[in-house]
């Protein structure tokens, strides 16, 4: 897998993540679950910026940024706050895996950026109610 392939894979994942966060935000009550609402909103903004940066990086690498799908799968019901919370933690965990793949396939500024974003997603899992892990993004090492 080339750097461009890893960037495209990360961008495709980011499209899905952003779409899903949009759903999670729409199903989170700002008045009933303010902390979760704030955490989901902050994550949405971070991932929107991440998607935009990935588009730029793909173009810099000589590629045409992969487009978003029309819709994405949602696993199970996402109605109650704990369900939203679990889904958001899962999104960030998956994001760390994808970004670590980009770390492996890049160098210089791209690797630096991917590591920064992976670290943010790892830490944000805690804000969303997740727990610290030994090998975030590399579950095969557990």
């Amino acid at each position: 897998m080339s750097t461009l392939d890893a960037l495209q894979a990360a961008l495709a994942e980011e499209h899905a993540t952003l779409w899903t966060y949009g759903v999670l935000g729409a199903r989170t009550s700002q008045s009933a679950s303010p902390a979760l609402y704030d955490a989901v909103t902050a994550a949405y903004r971070r991932h929107r910026a991440r998607r935009d940066q990935l588009r730029l990086l793909v173009r810099d690498a000589g590629g045409e940024p992969v487009a978003a799908a029309v819709a994405y799968e949602l696993d199970g019901a996402l109605v109650r706050p704990p369900q939203v919370q679990r889904a958001a933690v899962g999104l960030e965990a998956a994001g760390v895996e994808t970004l670590l793949a980009l770390v492996a396939r890049s160098s210089g500024e791209v690797r630096d950026w991917a590591l920064t974003e992976a670290t943010w997603s790892a830490v944000w899992q805690l804000e969303l109610g997740g727990a610290a892990q030994t090998w975030p993004g590399a579950p095969e090492l557990d």
Partner: peptide, 14 residues
């Protein structure tokens, strides 16, 4: 680098 990135992410979480 990927392994070290995971260590860095874990350290940041903790």
């Amino acid at each position: 680098a990927r392994v070290l990135a995971s260590v860095a992410a874990s350290t940041a979480q903790h």
